[in-house]
Design a protein around this nucleic acid. Structure first.
Lengths: 214, 214
DNA sequence: TAGATTGTTAATCGATTAACAATC
DNA sequence: TAGATTGTTAATCGATTAACAATC
């Protein structure tokens, strides 16, 4: 999937999906590009272009069939394909992600967690066991897992990432703020919440703020 | 701040900041645009353009002064201005964000949490009290808080968001997957982790995946 | 039919990349 | 000086928006 779809388009598809689901739940049969566009405050020809990019045909005068488009998006986005992953780093974020049931609706299945802290090893979080980091390679091979969710402290992020790659991980969902330096064939998706907040707050300059008392 | 900076540039600034901090910690005095660019796998003139967009002057032949650029970025991105916020919805994500100390380094100070569940009300998470939702308006007014972090279940997201706006909130960091329909003057920053994962996993089609057994 | 919508081509816009004079 | 880097202008690229014929 996603052979030659542009990244901006790919990022919009889940937003369309969310609206299509709302219409589905409301029992609507059809949805049009101007309606979707209005909800997302964007251009309607953009919506049509994106939907036609994933080869989904609409109907003149009617718009798009809700149930069918929903299925098409699920298919295209791989929501019905399970991607198994390990959480590496059992801190607040790692635990929260492991407990978040909603991920399974989006094709993400967390199998286990890893940490170096002996107090955390062998505990169970949301039904998933915490293993010592040294077990990682073995479990990657036995379970055929290629995706890791990296939620370790930033001081050790690069080091742990190197170890992940060495153990066979091919894709890293990186929640640290570190720009990981890894081989080209390993895909990294940077999800830095603090950085995202900074961008957000910089974009709302009109809202009063207090000086930080040092 | 951020008067006419483009969004792509604004999103890159925190990444530059992260690298500049590494150089700072390593005791380096200067950093150049080709070095930053190489680390982020991007074009060096992009880096120069972004840095000149925030009016920071480099030095011919030397590059940029690390300590000074660091300070300039902190200033521009408002890392030294405290933005106070409430967390609304005491679930896994709400709790994890409340416990995440690193936010304070990025100018985000979470003051309190809100929830409707009587079992959660009056508990304390990471030193912050959980209040009943009905106390929200009063506390917004008394503490002058304009930013809310929305981490409620998606069924109630729109309803709670309406209530937030009604209570005086002007900016919402939205962790639900719902496209909130709110007045124009309220800024919403959509941070849908499940959607982000979907985009990530769609962009790595080469990695083997298992069929979801239905 | 009349009217609304798709699908797509063409026009516009803006962001990225290349090039290079100015600088130290 | 020679060489490396900035800062910026110009060229390229790609994404968004506008327009409209085709469709039902």
């Amino acid at each position: 999937m996603s052979s030659k779809i542009s990244m901006p388009t790919l990022k919009r598809l889940p937003r369309y999906y969310s609206i299509v689901c709302q219409f589905f739940d409301a029992g609507e049969k059809y949805i049009t590009s101007p309606i979707i566009a209005k909800r997302l405050v964007m251009d309607d020809s953009q919506v049509r272009k994106d939907i036609s990019a994933i080869k989904y045909p609409g109907k003149s005068k009617m718009g798009f069939e809700v149930a069918d488009l929903k299925k098409h998006l699920e298919n295209y986005l791989g929501l019905n394909k399970q991607k198994e992953a390990f959480v590496v780093g059992v801190g607040n974020i790692g635990v929260a992600l492991s407990k978040y049931e909603n991920f399974e609706n989006y094709g993400l299945k967390i199998l286990a967690l890893f940490d170096n802290d002996p107090h955390k090893v062998d505990t169970v979080i949301a039904g998933k066991q915490v293993f010592h980091m040294s077990k990682l390679k073995d479990l990657i091979e036995r379970l055929n897992v290629y995706v890791a969710i990296l939620t370790v402290p930033k001081k050790v992020a690069q080091e742990v990432a190197d170890y992940l790659v060495d153990s066979g991980i091919k894709a890293i969902w990186n929640f640290t703020s570190v720009n990981l330096d890894l081989p080209e064939d390993v895909k990294v998706w940077h999800e830095d919440l603090a950085a995202s907040f900074v961008t957000f707050s910089s974009s709302i300059a009109d809202i009063p703020q207090r000086e930080l008392k040092k």
